[in-house]
Design a protein around this nucleic acid. Structure first.
Lengths: 251, 251
DNA sequence: ATGTCTTTGTGAACGCGTGCACAAAGATGG
DNA sequence: CCATCTTTGTGCACGCGTTCACAAAGACAT
């Protein structure tokens, strides 16, 4: 995970724990791979190994969905694929808009994972007039002036923000006002949204810093010297005011 | 968040809880913004609001680092920036390699967040001979034949994998064998690594599916009809064998 | 110096998530 | 029909993370 985790605090939606929901896509991916190899059934042990989790955890996760297994045999792959897909809401079509077509936005637009599994890129939106009309991943980029109309015309409820951090909150506000209730945020900003709107963030910078922490732990542990100076040197090299950086997010 | 979270199971490194480590980058970002506005001190309440967390949680987090605040006043911004940076290991230089220079790899190479905060893109690596020598973000792409040499010559310990999922495990194995001990994985694959190697994954597809789950919950709840058919229709539209997709990850 | 006011640091309780370990259930063979 | 074997589903205990609530600590004014 990426990931960060900023959405519903501790609300368990209809008995399915949040931690379980976060693992269902993992199971689904492993099951889809088995399905493509025409494997009919799979045991919790095998599937758990494929998904990289504990088998007891997997069984408990599935128990929240219902009793879909057969003791002594395992789980029917096709049936489970369908059940999980349905539970995750992937049997319906989810139109998605991407706002901010820089390097990252373009990469996501080209991302094959959108097309499969019910997600469909309904529109690409950018504030730069020079971008409007250009084709990215076979889709014409539209200007952000038309954001509200695009959202309502397409019935979009999921938005992806890949803008510079300085404008992320404004974009978010407009998306929410237009009817979007789920946001995937790639900009390094804390978004504030009204109740009922889910935000998940993906933050490369944070992931790297967490890795660096553990890396330092692994490498260090012998030379615990170098006391802290009283006047720290403020290590960011002052690369201009925040909020007007290229297209992908700065630290 | 993002991300998913697959690294150290429950090991608390020297008393700092994993959950706290994951929030330190958030605090650091908020503090850096304050620092740029020359704000001298900040209270736990203000800083918590800026970072989007509970103030009690923030105070407890900081208490693991030591007593850096002043009662009745708050925290010294500059001092705290330094302390957190040091704790996260950001006062040293971390050379990073990116393997797989497709759309996403290129986007990350251009990502400003690398340059600041101690991270430096030491090399870009791709398996395609046609890519070798081309400049991406001002850095020459090198062929993956030289992966081991690049790692050891630059003393790289952090690797970023943005390859198609079919080759992610091989790339991972080679990175680890060459000395990399922290991996940020963007490929939708479960990587298996030996003990002592940290893996964090960022998975767009999983994040979207989690959003879809909650979105379905919000929208539904009234028409709980449409019983499950016995023979599910296997909704992925069979877009070819897994493992040979463009450059960014499929579902 | 003393009192008041603000804000930190933390003890304690609670809830969620994880993993063990086993009983129940069904398949399979004789 | 019965015995055996495999695998699920889950009760239970434990540990981590979160939050409340308050005592301790310092700033500041008088």
């Amino acid at each position: 995970m990426a990931t960060g985790r900023t959405h519903r605090p501790a609300t368990r939606s209809r008995g399915i724990p949040e931690a379980t929901v976060a693992r269902l896509p993992l199971y689904l991916r492993a099951l889809t791979a088995l399905s493509e190899r025409s494997v009919p059934t799979v045991s919790s042990e095998e599937l758990a190994a494929a998904a990289g989790v504990n088998s007891a955890k997997l069984r408990k996760d599935f128990s929240y969905l219902g009793s879909y297994g057969t003791r002594g045999v395992g789980y029917d792959v096709e049936y489970l694929v369908y059940q999980i897909s349905r539970e995750l809401g992937l049997t319906q079509d989810w139109p998605v808009v991407i706002v901010g077509i820089g390097n990252l936005g373009a990469a996501l637009a080209n991302y094959g994972g959108f097309a499969s599994r019910g997600f469909r890129v309904a529109a690409l939106i950018d504030a730069d007039p020079a971008m409007a009309g250009r084709q990215v991943a076979g889709i014409a980029v539209q200007h952000s002036d038309d954001l509200e109309k695009i959202i309502s015309d397409n019935g979009v409820s999921i938005g992806v923000i890949t803008t510079p951090p300085g404008v992320a909150q404004q974009v978010c506000d407009r998306l929410v006002a237009a009817g979007v209730t789920s946001i995937l945020n790639f900009a390094p900003t804390v978004l504030s949204v009204p109740d009922g709107v889910d935000v998940r963030k993906v933050d490369l910078s944070i992931e790297l810093q967490i890795l660096a922490f553990h890396e330092q732990r692994k490498a260090g542990e012998e030379h615990e010297g170098t006391a802290a100076p009283a006047a720290p040197h403020h290590d960011s090299d002052e690369q201009g005011p925040d909020g007007d950086v290229p297209a992908v997010m700065p630290a």
